[in-house]
């Protein structure tokens, strides 16, 4: 069975290390915050100017002045810090953020990513995505392996307008976990019940199966 969105988030959460500063994008990446492993302390960065983002507020305690980059009402935590947008992207650009998790429409087997525009259909803008992918040391993409029509989103090259070049290090899809190396997509884990044959059939980009490939686990 392919993973649902919650399970993709749960698997990505295992990539979090104690002490990490982490930026989680909108969509599946946001869900990662719900599965931070016990004993792992991370600080969540929201690019509109908040380090130490807390959970949603209780009803009645929400403030129009305190939101995350998805414009949702949030809270601060003890030890939070607030700053302006220039400093926020300053710390991103300077490589202070340890891990960025974001969604994508397409990823190429060299690490190129497209996630901001569909010409003639969707022109919402790139927001902070181009800045994040240009600067982050470690970028994990959370996405469905194929689009609604069944076409692979793991490609030899992106067909949509590029967000950033050679920047994605890892993809966690509903079918498995893929490192991006000189060998293209290297499948290191498959989702429970998903076969290597299915992964091969649904991956259009260059795919290598790691010798150590194994079924995905959701806790260490």
């Amino acid at each position: 069975m392919a993973l649902n969105k919650e399970q993709i988030a749960q698997r990505i959460a295992l990539e979090l290390k104690d002490g990490y500063y982490v930026n989680l994008g909108i969509g599946i990446p946001t869900l990662v915050a719900n599965y931070i492993p016990h004993g792992v302390n991370v600080v969540l960065q929201s690019e509109n100017g908040l380090l130490g983002m807390g959970p949603f507020p209780f009803a009645g305690e929400e403030s129009a002045d305190l939101i995350n980059a998805g414009k949702q009402t949030v809270t601060t935590l003890p030890g939070s810090a607030i700053f302006d947008s220039a400093m926020s992207f300053g710390m991103i650009r300077a490589g202070k953020v340890d891990l960025t998790v974001l969604g994508a429409m397409e990823v190429a087997d060299n690490g190129d990513i497209a996630n901001w525009k569909i010409p003639g259909k969707m022109v919402k803008g790139m927001g902070g995505a181009m800045d994040l992918v240009a600067a982050a040391k470690n970028i994990i993409v959370a996405m469905q392996h194929t689009d609604k029509a069944g076409n692979s989103k793991l490609l030899p090259q992106c067909s949509l307008p590029i967000t950033g070049l050679k920047c994605v290090k890892k993809v966690v899809s509903d079918l498995g976990v893929f490192d991006i190396t000189d060998q293209g997509f290297v499948c290191i884990e498959y989702a429970p019940g998903v076969t290597i044959e299915e992964i091969k059939a649904k991956t259009a980009g260059k795919l290598t199966i790691a010798e150590s490939v194994h079924e995905m686990k959701f806790s260490e």
């Binding site: 220039a86 650009r93 927001g127 181009m130 800045d131 950033g164």
Partner: peptide
């Protein structure tokens, strides 16, 4: 890009005419 927008505002207020940025290359 959002960081470029913020940084272009920043340098304006700091009296810096232009800035090199990585975001958007390619």
């Amino acid at each position: 890009p959002q960081g470029t927008l913020a940084t272009r505002c920043l340098i304006t207020g700091y009296g810096i005419p232009f800035v090199p940025v990585l975001a958007g290359v390619g």
